[in-house]
Design a protein around this nucleic acid. Sequence first.
RNA 1: GGUGCCAUAGCCAAGUGGUAAGGCAGAGCUCUGCAAAAGCUCCACUCCCCAGUUCAAAUCUGGGUGGCACCU
Length: 313
Amino acid sequence: MPPKIIVVSGPTASGKTRLAVELALSHNGEVVSADSMQIYRRMDIGTAKPTSEEMRGIPHHMIDVADPEEDFSVARYVDLAAQCVDDILARGKLPILAGGTGLYIDSLLSGRTFAHFDEQSPLRGELEARMRTEGGQALLEELQKVDPDSAARLHPNDEKRIVRALEVYYSTGKTITQHNAETKALPPRYEALTLTLAFSRREDMWARIDRRVDEMMEAGLVQEVEQLLHSGVPQRCTAMQAIGYKEMAAALLGDGDTAAAAEEIKLRSRQYAKRQLTWFRRNSAAKWLYWDSVPDFAAALQASTGYMKEFGI
RNA sequence: GGUGCCAUAGCCAAGUGGUAAGGCAGAGCUCUGCAAAAGCUCCACUCCCCAGUUCAAAUCUGGGUGGCACCU
């Protein structure tokens, strides 16, 4: 049997950080973040990174492990996070994976491997260039010849996935369909009890998100983004596509209307939360904890502890 | 009080006689190396109301109602 761990997931601003710490305190655990943006150093306010007061002495891993100008990826995340989890287990403690990046969580748990390829290779750049000149339909037809299954699944507009499918094929000689089937057959790396936080009513979630963005503004989001820009972080890198940074950077470089940018951030955050919920709904084994208008951590802790007993922890 | 203009989805908005564009917002979904990303689907049986003209009306006519503008 794979080792057991706890996962705390949920849309943005649903209280994952707090619940994870509570669980860690009561069950001798350590937190491993599963957040694609808290990975980056110097991006604290806008990613709602836990402060040291919020951590309450609980070690947090997978936060501040990359610089904003670096390229990060799921593959790197899985490598690093698996080491953290295994280390926590080896020390006899309970790993609590907490975060809102569904792809990272699922990839880590499933034991998924990623097709190896040469990062120096110009292949992807070439494919992207061809995508621009020849268009998605042409590349999709090319994919159709080698991997009809994935070609049938992809929409001509889904350029990223067409490029990736072709990239995997040309660099490994294996189709992405084949690769996915092989990795799907691998045993899961961990057995997880997944706790998913959510609000019963969407309006309550929106209110929480709005308030949190206001708090970020008060905490100095504008200054944080200014500093990133001044230190030369390019606007197009992955870190700067994070919600909060993208909009604020555009405002600072444009009309300077930071209040309007904050409203935009609220909107984008609500849309993001909706996408997260879609992802989490796919996990039929997840235990959902619903907030009735406002989070009640005492109740959540109690319910979680019940689930953990059933789960055998 | 008078005159003029306007009324189309939650919002913006095209459509001037032939059977309701588009955008935003919203909902649902997909997802295997950029994922806080990217992509897909759905969303007005009806155009403020009533009457009329017409084979046919959001489009034309008359009368209401509401809004805006100007005049007194």
